[in-house]
């Protein structure tokens, strides 16, 4: 049985229990569109890696249904494995040279030799492995190994790529390079499921994000939606060119008082201070209001909520 042809991954009421104890994944449901980058965030032990392991057929689900590219995980695990790529959180190498790791992996995936050669050269260049290509894997540092592990996965074609904390140990420049490369692949139609502990990464790369806690999906949406919904109290400071007149002060104060999400504010001299939730919406409203009053703005200082704020807010509930 296949499901909606637009869904690359469809998870319904997934449960995973180890030895009949507490559910590592508890009634989890979500779906990922084709060509989408979906981030799965959560604390250590929240159930991210377990979910990825179920989705990649490494461990069987206890209950629920999973479809990958329309294929039922329980009925067609072998077919699923042929169309997915997986970069595990743990190291996984053949203890030979960097170059041989690409060649062996290409051979295992039945990639023609000429294509392996071409892709290997490109990937080695892109992932800054040129000087290491003849080194044996045990000579590499943690970050270099991770680069190889991620790069090697792109030697073969796939419909869905599962990346379980792929940038651990990489420097910020390399991290950005890898994320940009994954983004580019997704533009070409690759679906990516991504887990990370570095929330700026998720913010940068993911089209949608799911936050799981104790095996349950507790929040889901685009980064913007999550920030709007869960971004904790933030501050907005607008400085005008001239001191506000009393009538202007009253008008602005009434406007702010009636705005949703404002928890505190002050209008004094040239400045307006607002503290509250959903500040990006309030900022939009304020700019419109002040502009409509023909008041000149000198400066706006906006303390925007980050995905870290969202994450902390969601998982502490």
């Amino acid at each position: 049985m296949t499901t909606d042809s637009q869904k690359a991954v469809e998870v319904r009421n997934l449960v995973k229990t180890y030895d009949g104890k507490k559910n590592a994944v508890d009634d989890l449901s979500f779906s990922v569109e084709k060509g989408e980058i979906y981030g799965l965030l959560g604390k250590n032990g929240a159930g991210k890696s377990t979910t990825i392991k179920v989705l990649t057929t490494l461990i069987p689900p206890s209950a629920g249904t999973v479809h990958v590219s329309g294929l039922d995980l329980r009925k067609k695990p072998n077919s699923i494995r042929k169309i997915v790529g997986v970069v595990q959180q743990e190291e996984a190498f053949d203890f030979t040279t960097v170059e041989n790791n690409f060649k062996i992996y290409g051979m295992l995936w039945e990639v023609p030799k000429a294509v392996v050669k071409e892709r290997m050269d490109q990937l080695i260049e892109l992932f800054n492995l040129s000087e290491l290509r003849r080194k044996r894997v045990f000579e590499l540092s943690g970050g270099q190994k991770k680069r190889l592990q991620v790069a090697r996965e792109f030697i073969h074609d796939m419909d869905v790529l599962f990346l379980d904390e792929p940038t651990v140990g990489m420097d910020p420049i390399m991290r950005r390079k890898v994320l940009d490369f994954v983004k580019e692949k997704a533009k070409g139609g690759l679906t990516v499921m991504f887990t990370t502990q570095i929330l700026e990464e998720a913010d940068y790369i993911c089209d949608r994000i799911g936050i799981i806690d104790n095996g349950k999906l507790v929040a889901e949406g685009t980064s913007r939606q999550l920030k709007d919904q869960f971004g904790s109290v933030k501050k907005l400071e607008i400085t005008m060119h001239n001191v506000l007149e009393d009538a202007e002060k009253n008008d602005v104060s009434d406007f702010i008082r009636n705005a949703d999400g404002v928890t505190d504010f002050q209008v004094r001299g040239r400045s307006i201070w607002i503290v509250g939730n959903n500040m990006s919406r309030i900022l939009n409203l304020m700019i419109k209001k002040i502009t409509s009053m023909s008041i000149e703005i000198d400066q706006i200082i906006f303390d925007a909520p980050s995905l870290d704020d969202v994450f902390l807010e969601v998982v502490k509930r």
Binding site: T56, T57, L58, N78, R81, K82, V84, V86, Q88, E90, E91, A92, F93, D94, F95, L108, W109, E110
Partner: peptide
Amino acid sequence: WSDRRWGMFEQLMVGPFR
């Protein structure tokens, strides 16, 4: 033993193999 120790057993088991 070495494939389990170095992660390749799991890597192969999520690849096109039984």
